[in-house]
Each structure stands twice: as C-alpha cells, then as structure tokens.
C-alpha cells in the first residue's frame, strides 16, 4: 500500500467521521444517535490503525483496539442500558431547530479549515488534512451539547468532542504517547460512569433528565 493510497483511505475515513458528526446533529431519535456514535468510533479506530500502519507506529494499534472496545462496544452498551433502565423518551428535544444547527455546523467546518490552513501548509505528514476535520468534530460536539436539552444527548456530545480530540492527536502528531492515551481512555470511561450516576440522581430528584429543570438550582432572585 503506497503512501498515496493510504492518504486516500485516511481522507475517506475522515470524511466519514465528519459525516457521522453531522448525522448526530440531524438525528432525532436517541437510539439512532447512539448508533451513529458507535459508527464514528469505528471509523476512528480504523483510521488510527491505518495511520499506525503507514507511519510504522505500532503502539497506535493498541489505541485503535482500545477505541474499538470502549467507544464502539462498551459506551454504546452502557448508554443503551441507561436509556432502557431510566425509561427515557426516545425523541430528542432540541433548543435550536435542526436546519439552523446544520448551518452553524457548516460555518464551523469552514472556520476550522481556514484556521488550520497555515498548519496544513507547513506539515509534511500524511494525515495533515485531517486536522481541520478533527477540529470541526470537536466544535460540532460542543455545539451538540449546547443545542440539546436532554442530559443523555449532552453526554454523547461530550464523547463526540473527545473523539475529535483523539482524532486531532493521531492526525497532527501520529498519536500521543501510549501512557497518555491509556489515561485518556480510562478518563472517558470513568467520566461515562460518573455521568451515569449523575443521571440516575438527576432523574430521581427532578423526575426528568431535562437539564432545563436544573435552572431551579440557581440562587434565588
């Protein structure tokens, strides 16, 4: 596999990651959202493995397997179980309507490309063009957290942001040192657990997972 083909494959996968990010912005059903998240994890995992192969960095395989295990299998499973257990409504409620969110997302992608233009010119890596997409994924994740009303969708937004960060790390530098990646992976897992516990408590306290309810926690007028 020559370098040209590799670059093609990686760019294709990056496009798929961005596509799933937009898909998550559009998706109105919560199970669909989790599926898309799992798909995004899968693309990420494959692209990490390919970058590892192309650059000869074998520790990236471990990252890739970890991503597969955590983001494609474990976290979607936990989220599914949580939704089932807490009997959450299956529709997603948005704060801003979907077309507008899409438009903001597109603006963010353009912004990311213009922002990373100098970096792309200077870098010689195979993966340099991914940086813009990774940044866009992070921002779309944050946008999702802002525009969704439901706590479970917010955590998916958070995890999507983390995907973007991971993607940026592999693309810009061929991955962080393994220790750091292991740490980050465990962090994400633990964050998911803590979120799960919080959801449970929020649900029992407010009888809902609508974060609008938490405005009541604000100090009195």
């Amino acid at each position: 596999m020559d370098i040209q083909t590799t670059a093609q494959i990686i760019n294709f996968l990056a496009a798929m990651v961005l596509l799933t990010a937009f898909g998550m912005l559009v998706q109105r059903r919560i199970y669909g959202l989790i599926h898309l998240f799992a798909w995004q994890g899968l693309f990420l995992s494959v692209s990490t493995a390919i970058v590892g192969y192309a650059a000869g960095r074998h520790h990236l395989y471990i990252s890739s397997v970890l991503t597969l295990a955590l983001k494609v299998i474990l976290l979607p499973y936990i989220l599914n179980a949580l939704i089932h257990k807490l009997k959450i409504r299956k529709e997603i409620e948005t704060v801003v309507n979907v077309p507008l969110t899409m438009l903001i997302g597109i603006a963010l992608v353009i912004f990311s490309y213009s922002l990373t233009a100098p970096v792309r010119e200077m870098s010689t890596l195979v993966t340099r063009s991914i940086l813009a997409i990774a940044l866009a994924t992070v921002m779309i994740g944050l946008l999702m957290m802002i525009t969704r009303r439901h706590a479970v969708t917010q955590i998916i937004g958070f995890l999507a942001m983390e995907n973007g960060l991971f993607f940026a790390a592999t693309s810009a530098t061929y991955g962080m040192p393994l220790v750091v990646e292991l740490g980050v992976a465990i962090d994400v897992l633990i964050a998911a657990f803590i979120f799960g516990i919080f959801f449970f408590h929020i649900n029992t306290t407010f009888d809902s997972l609508d974060v609008e309810q938490m405005a009541r926690l604000k100090e009195g007028e």
Binding site: P118, M139, L142, V211, M214, K218
Partner: peptide
C-alpha cells in the same frame, strides 16, 4: 455579575464555546 449565572447548562457551555472561538480567532 450574578446576571451571568443563568442556571442553564447550555448557557454556560455557550460561554466556553464563544471563549474558545474568540481565542482561536484572535490568538492564531
């Protein structure tokens, strides 16, 4: 200053989002 405190998570996230965007625009 207390008016910043809206009690809504989305508002707080928007604060960080805008901060990040502004920093990216002006610093880079």
């Amino acid at each position: 200053v207390g008016m910043l405190q809206q009690g809504r998570i989305q508002t707080y996230l928007i604060y960080s989002f805008i901060t990040i965007i502004l920093l990216l625009v002006f610093v880079i």
